[in-house]
Simulated scan of single mutants.
Amino acid sequence: MAAVPTRDELRAHLVRTMIAGDVATPRQNNLLHYRRMAARNPYYLFGLDLKPGWTEREILRVMIERCGVAPDPLHLYGDDTIDPELTIGALEAMGDRIGLAAQRGERVVLATGHPATLTPVYQAVAQALAERGCPILTPAAGWTYEIEGSFGAEPRRIVYTPEGVAMLEGEDGRTHHTHDAAPMEAMLAELAAATTPAEGSRELERNSWPDLAIADHGWAGAAGQAGIDTVGFADCNDPALFAGADEGKIDVVVPLDDGVSPHHYAPLTAYLLNRAGLD
């Protein structure tokens, strides 16, 4: 475990590693994703049923407020920005919610669409919560569906790390990036089936339903849409989760570049666990 940085040290680290500050995500890519979300392209909605009225202008507004992208609407090309103060503030809010889950012994699901980069963050959180007695739920392991790949249909299945972090695996045995909400929807469908009340019962048995989801991309969107308390991470080209937070469907979204080398997230992870009281 990395040493816990001070707030100023974490801020400097985020900027130095380009997790926040001037990031490598092209502005033109951000604007393209905002446009596609405004057109309600399902791939860019992350499983969220967002209200009508999310125009490109409104999406840019919320991304300025919650992520810290460059506010100039005429900034069309080049790199974009993430405000490190917003990153740290949201990380602290995430830590507070995770800490509450630990105190309550809540049931938690964890999942990532960025297994190549963010997995160590989720693994550390899952292990810390499990050590405090939180059940880490692992529904629908092995559930399979198909995506449209470059050479036709490609199967994907839900797999879990030993700590209980869900991700997608292909036929090649490698984990894969995904925006899809379908895997989390499948996980929740299995959990919902396990919470069906017995005939004549007036109350829903909640033993299997999650209290908290810690996730990103469509994993987070589907959980928030289902009414589960959801905290997660999102890049500046992933506007749906920030819009979901604006609508109150997602509790916390930490803005960061989600594609840097995994070891660079270690100080962020240490800060998060310390904030949650889990270090």
Rank of each mutant, 00 (worst) to 15 (best):
239 P>F: 07
152 G>N: 10
200 G>W: 03
15 V>H: 02
153 A>N: 09
158 I>Y: 09
123 Q>A: 12
77 Y>T: 13
83 D>W: 03
40 R>M: 10
163 E>I: 01
98 I>N: 00
65 E>Q: 14
151 F>I: 08
119 T>H: 09
256 L>A: 09
29 N>S: 14
100 L>C: 00
79 D>K: 14
74 L>N: 13
10 L>D: 08
73 P>S: 10
253 V>D: 05
250 I>Y: 02
75 H>K: 14
165 V>F: 04
13 H>M: 09
83 D>F: 04
113 G>I: 06
2 A>D: 12
101 A>E: 00
183 P>T: 10
109 V>E: 02
193 A>Q: 10
65 E>P: 03
181 A>L: 07
248 G>P: 09
165 V>K: 05
80 D>T: 14
127 Q>F: 02
48 L>R: 04
162 P>S: 04
107 R>H: 01
150 S>W: 11
1 M>A: 15
5 P>I: 10
98 I>W: 00
26 P>R: 11
259 G>D: 15
134 C>S: 12
54 W>F: 14
159 V>Q: 09
239 P>K: 06
146 E>F: 11
51 K>A: 15
10 L>R: 06
52 P>R: 11
40 R>E: 14
144 T>Q: 14
113 G>R: 03
88 I>P: 01
257 D>V: 07
140 A>F: 02
148 E>V: 13
225 Q>A: 12
146 E>G: 06
90 A>R: 11
240 A>L: 07
215 A>H: 03
203 E>K: 03
90 A>I: 04
167 M>A: 06
275 R>N: 00
152 G>H: 11
30 N>A: 15
3 A>G: 03
207 N>S: 11
145 Y>I: 06
212 L>M: 01
253 V>E: 07
109 V>F: 02
33 H>P: 00
243 A>R: 04
100 L>S: 03
57 R>F: 01
63 M>H: 12
177 H>M: 14
255 P>K: 10
28 Q>N: 14
131 E>Q: 15
69 V>R: 01
87 T>A: 10
4 V>K: 02
5 P>C: 13
199 E>R: 10
169 E>D: 10
118 L>Q: 14
195 T>E: 05
